[in-house]
Computed example of a mutant assay.
Amino acid sequence: MAVFNDDISINSIIGNGSSIRGDIKINGFMRIDGDLEGNLETTGNVLVGENARIAGNITARSITVGGIIKGNVVAPEQVHLLSSSVVIGDIQTRRFQADENVIVHGHCISLYDETEYESASAEWENIKSISQKAIKVD
């Protein structure tokens, strides 16, 4: 599916047919082929298989998506969306690659320059924070 330039040994796997509910925080490379309902945070790379379904936010160094993610994706190094992928949420990365027929519904920040990326990410986080705390006054 994906080729990463560094160590590709997988530290953790959620296999096809498996289902996990709850947040996960790990070190290293993670592969998901099953279902995850919760947030995932890792210091390494994430590979989301074509049959995977995730309802939660993902924070990783880089991510390759073949399945469905309903949540935000933050992967400063790279985001690669394969042709079978669906992302319903925001994407933040320095390098963005999307194959044909992907579906993305959300806001995308993809700036290679580190200063511009950090500035745009901080600004977007502020906008989201303000809009989530907005109060309707009649």
Rank of each mutant, 00 (worst) to 15 (best):
M30T: 07
I13V: 15
C108A: 10
K136G: 03
D6G: 13
L111Q: 13
D99T: 03
S19R: 01
D6S: 11
I13C: 10
S19L: 07
S62W: 02
Q78G: 05
F4N: 12
V137F: 08
R21N: 00
G49M: 04
A60T: 07
W124R: 08
S19H: 03
K136Q: 07
D99P: 01
Q97F: 15
N126E: 07
H107R: 12
F29D: 00
N126C: 09
A120G: 09
N126L: 08
G49C: 07
N51Y: 11
T64W: 10
S12L: 08
S119G: 06
C108T: 13
A55W: 08
G89S: 09
K136N: 06
T64N: 11
S19Y: 06
I68F: 15
A60R: 02
G28N: 05
E123L: 07
L111C: 06
N126A: 15
D6M: 07
L47V: 12
V3Q: 12
Q78D: 05
M1F: 08
G38F: 04
V86C: 08
S9H: 10
V86N: 14
V74C: 05
I130E: 15
R95A: 14
I26Y: 10
N11S: 13
C108Y: 01
G38Y: 02
D6K: 15
V74E: 13
R21L: 00
F4H: 12
S18T: 09
V79G: 03
G67M: 08
L40F: 06
A98G: 05
K70V: 15
W124E: 12
L36K: 02
K136Y: 00
I8H: 14
H107K: 12
E125M: 12
E37F: 03
I63G: 00
V3P: 15
I127F: 09
S131F: 08
G66L: 07
G106D: 06
H107Q: 10
S131D: 15
D138V: 01
V104H: 06
D7A: 09
G71M: 02
R61G: 02
I69P: 01
K25Q: 03
H80P: 02
M30L: 15
A134I: 10
I103D: 08
T42K: 06
A134N: 10
G17H: 05
K136E: 00
Q97W: 11
G89M: 13
V104F: 04
I91R: 10
I20S: 00
D6C: 07
S18D: 06
I103N: 11
T42E: 01
S131C: 09
M1I: 02
N11A: 11
I20H: 11
D33M: 02
A55V: 13
D35M: 09
T115S: 15
S129Q: 13
I63A: 10
V3C: 07
T59K: 02
E50V: 12
S131I: 11
I109T: 04
R31E: 00
L82R: 05
V46I: 09
N5D: 14
Q92C: 09
N39H: 14
S110E: 06
T115E: 15
G17W: 09
R95I: 13
H107P: 00
D90H: 05
V48K: 04
G22T: 01
F96Q: 03
K133V: 05
A122M: 10
G44Q: 03
S12P: 00
L47W: 04
A98F: 05
